[in-house]
Each structure stands twice: as structure tokens, then as C-alpha cells.
Design a protein around this nucleic acid. Structure first.
Length: 273
DNA sequence: ATCGGGACCTGCTTGC
DNA sequence: TGCAAGCAGGTCCCGA
């Protein structure tokens, strides 16, 4: 489920249940994730208070005095809140890790493909996976001057460029396609050949698309503690993602599909140049 | 420094 | 109906 809006929605969903709670127990059923889960996690986190729940890129960060628990959902991961005292919820397939809290709730990590990860680090922002990441897309630090300067001399496709975490974080395959469509930029265009004016449009649309998706995700939050707490992309109008062969919503040309950076990409060859 | 490709996994859909 | 191929929202790492 993870594009940045889904991760942020998850963060907001678990925050009210987890903020200020003490971790009583960590259960690891499957340690083989993207990186092996530390077997001593329970020992290290037992009795620790969760002092904050934040996000950096697509990592959720549970902050404690012994360090930050960095949770990445990979391609198929999700977190859900399970209430011990409420409807008994049996452990399901791929429920790999439980973080049991002092209020009786459990943060349950499920991830069929196991591309996700759970890592404890003294300071998340000092971890090698995080320290070299680009700016958050929804901050002022991510602006047209920055992106245009970075793109100078870059010969990859603009789509691959904006999906590169060292340039800007949180732009995944769906929203990269949507933002490029809204900006009228062909995803295959060489990054350094996109004019400043169009880079401005692109930055603005990346922000817009992500902000709208977070807003839409927020409408599902009230159901977060429910069985499958999955926010849906269907809440938002997607112009191109998944619509290959269908008519462009702008000009009615048939949308084309290409593989860029090993990822399926749908675009309008008429609107996007 | 930059780039492309392979790798890590399971599950669902599609086509023969 | 059954089985294999193809594809999926991420991203790290390696070799060129």
C-alpha cells in the first residue's frame, strides 16, 4: 500500500492509539523482511514509552528513549490496530510483527511480499538509509529552483528522476505518473531538458497530488481500527495510472503505456510532450 | 557521478 | 479446470 499518502494516513491512524503508550511486548513471527528484524527487539523496547510517531520519506518512526523504530511498508505492507479486548482478531497470514501496548492495543504489521522493514536505530535521521535522502515533497525546501538545479546534467527520464529518493522522497509510481500528466510532461523526457517553467509546474503538481491524496486518505481514518484499515486510491481520481488504452480525460486520445525504470508508465502522447 | 538492471517476496489476474 | 506467465503501490546494491 505504500505511496507517501498511504504512509502518512497510516501514521495519523495509529497515532491516537500509540502516542504516549508504553511498549509491553514485541512479538516477531517472521524476521525475514527486507532486512532481518533484530531478534532482541523485544528486549530492547520492552517498557519503552512511545514519545512520538513521525514520518520521514516512507518510513514511519516510533520514537522512544532508546531509539527510533523505523517501519517501512515496502510494496505490500500495512499496519493495523488490533484491540485485545474487543472482537478477537486472530493472527492472519503474513502478520509478521506485533507491538503490544500498555492500553491493550496492538500495532500489527502485515506484509505479504516482505519488502518492508522494521529497524531500531538510535537516531533515525542518522541511519544510512535515511541520512542521504532528498527533501520532503511537501516542504518549502522542495521547490522549483532546487529541482531545476538538480536536474541539470541529469540524463535519466524525468519520471525516474522524480522517483529517485536522493532527489526528492515520497514520489512513487502512481503519483509520479499523475503529476507528470497534470504538468503536460512526457515521462520519458530527459530530466535536464525540462524547462524551468515546466519544472515549476511539476513541483506544484507533485505537492498538489500528494496533498490531495493525504486529504482523501484522511476520510478513511475513522475506520482505521477496523479489520483492514486500507485507504484506497479509488478515493482519488486517477487520470492515467492503470488506464492504459483508455481515453485521455483531457483530449480523448488513447493513453499509451511504456516501461520506464522497470516500472509501468501510462501517459498521453498528445498532452504530454 | 550516473545509469540500468537484477534482486528481494507473495498473490492475484490473465491466457493458453 | 489447471497451470504457467505476467504483473503489482519500493528501493537497495552492483557492475559498467
Amino acid at each position: 500500500m505504500p505511496e507517501l499518502p498511504e504512509v502518512e494516513t497510516t501514521r495519523r491512524g495509529i497515532e491516537p492509539f500509540a502516542q504516549g503508550q508504553t511498549i509491553e511486548h514485541v512479538i516477531i513471527r517472521q524476521a525475514k523482511l527486507r532486512w532481518p528484524v533484530d531478534k532482541a527487539l523485544n528486549k530492547k523496547l520492552n517498557g519503552q514509552k512511545i514519545t512520538g510517531i513521525t514520518r520521514r520519506a516512507k518510513y514511519l518512526l516510533l520514537q522512544t528513549h532508546v531509539g527510533d523504530l523505523m517501519i517501512h511498508l515496502g510494496m505490500s505492507g500495512s499496519l493495523r490496530i488490533v484491540g485485545k479486548r474487543e472482537a478477537k482478531e486472530p493472527v492472519q497470514k503474513h502478520d509478521h510483527v506485533d507491538i503490544c501496548l500498555s492500553n491493550g492495543k496492538i500495532i500489527r504489521f502485515n506484509d505479504p511480499r516482505r519488502f518492508g522493514s522494521i529497524i531500531l536505530n538510535k537516531q533515525a535521521d542518522k541511519h544510512s538509509l535515511l541520512e542521504k535522502l532528498g527533501p520532503e515533497p511537501l516542504t518549502e525546501e522542495f521547490n522549483a529552483d532546487y529541482l531545476h538545479a538538480k536536474a541539470k546534467s541529469r540524463k535519466v527520464a524525468i519520471k525516474s528522476f522524480i522517483m529517485n529518493n536522493h532527489i526528492v522522497v515520497g514520489v512513487g509510481n502512481i503519483y509520479a505518473q499523475e503529476a507528470l500528466f497534470l504538468s503536460g510532461i512526457n515521462p520519458n523526457r530527459t530530466a535536464c531538458k525540462v524547462s524551468k517553467v515546466r519544472v515549476e509546474k511539476l513541483v506544484s503538481n507533485i505537492k498538489q497530488v500528494l496533498a490531495d491524496a493525504i486529504k482523501a486518505g484522511g476520510t478513511t481514518l475513522k475506520d482505521f481500527s477496523g479489520a483492514d484499515g486500507k485507504p484506497g486510491y479509488f478515493q482519488q481520481t486517477l487520470n492515467v495510472y492503470g488506464r492504459s488504452g483508455e481515453p485521455c480525460l483531457n483530449c480523448c486520445f488513447e493513453l499509451k503505456q511504456a516501461i520506464i525504470g522497470q516500472r509501468t508508465t501510462v501517459y498521453c502522447s498528445n498532452c504530454q510532450r
